[in-house]
Design a protein around this nucleic acid. Structure first.
Length: 285
DNA sequence: CTCCAGGTTCCGG
DNA sequence: CCGGAACATGGA
């Protein structure tokens, strides 16, 4: 029999949606639930209606990770009232933005550049199993995301062998910058949104989009609005129909204003809805 | 074979 | 500030 599980109350929550929407990449299905790591702690999670089952002792850690304290109802009420947003909102009930550890969040998104979600998951898995600390839950082997020091000690060739492609150099350089204390993620956590974004972009392979993902998924900045190819397509076709020459700068300014204080949530809902309703990037002009 | 994927960086206008 | 090109890899 498995170790004892404890129940947490989890209203307005969809575990499968939350773990499968492309914000975090290492959880895998296991039995009736999911198996993954919360930082260095192995965790099993299973949803039964409005309750969440997690290993006894991990109740508060899991509740925090899955952001069960986010007032989803109130946050959704701040979304703009337009057809595209409403459709996405309807399709993403219970999707919560989890609180990822700073380092693994920024690192995985550095490796996400120009990669499909399944590829990102594959890269994450390879890095974890080769260079991460091993852990175990009920006989199941799990691996933490490799530390900055662990990656900093490698060569670019080692990372390229993990199918990172040209992203290998960026991840390695960034791991070394963090390991050497050239950039402090703890310090970033104390900065305002804009200053934090600027600071993160000092890291190799971190531009506006990856910085926004890290701020949103790792630093709890729920207004951060990552603009990737999917979102850009939605913005252009839905909010700037048949307009030529809409610069990315213009899109950023519009998004920051239009989607409000929880724009990051709106963004993730739009992203997931688009990705699950248009199997392959059709430009549906 | 071609196209595209949760981009960033560098380089000329 | 803006538009292009290069950069790896794998699935459709």
């Amino acid at each position: 029999m498995s170790r004892a599980l404890a129940e947490i109350t989890a209203p307005e929550f969809d575990l499968a949606l939350t773990l499968g929407c492309g914000q975090v990449f290492h959880w895998r299905r296991h039995g009736e639930g999911w198996l993954g790591m919360i930082g260095d702690t192995p965790c099993y999670a299973e949803q039964r209606g409005h309750t969440l089952l997690v290993p006894r002792g991990l109740e508060s850690i899991a509740a925090d990770y899955f952001a069960l304290d986010h007032p989803l109802q109130k946050m959704r009420a701040t979304f703009p009232d337009d057809p595209a947003m409403n459709a996405a909102d309807e399709a993403c009930r219970g999707l919560r933005l989890v609180r990822q550890p700073h380092w693994e969040c920024i690192a995985t998104f550095i490796t996400s550049a120009q990669k499909a979600v399944p590829h990102i998951a594959q890269i994450s898995h390879t890095l974890r199993t080769r260079y991460g600390r091993a852990a175990e839950w009920n006989g199941e082997r799990l691996f933490a995301y490799p530390t900055p020091a662990a990656l900093a000690a490698l060569g670019e060739k080692d990372l390229r062998a993990c199918a990172l492609g040209y992203r290998a150099k960026n991840l390695l350089r960034t791991a070394r910058m963090i390991a050497d204390g050239e950039v402090s993620l703890e310090a970033v956590a104390g900065l305002g949104d804009h200053e934090a974004a600027i600071e993160l972009q000092r890291l190799a392979g971190v531009g506006p989009k990856v910085a926004a993902c890290a701020l949103l998924f790792g630093f709890g900045r729920l207004a951060a609005f990552p603009i990737d190819v999917w979102i850009e397509r939605i913005l252009r076709t839905t909010y700037f129909p048949k307009k030529r020459k809409v610069t990315t700068k213009r899109l950023r300014e519009f998004s920051a204003r239009y989607f409000g204080p929880f724009g990051g949530y709106a963004q993730q809902y739009l992203f997931h809805h688009a990705r699950t309703t248009t199997p392959r990037g059709n430009k549906s002009k």
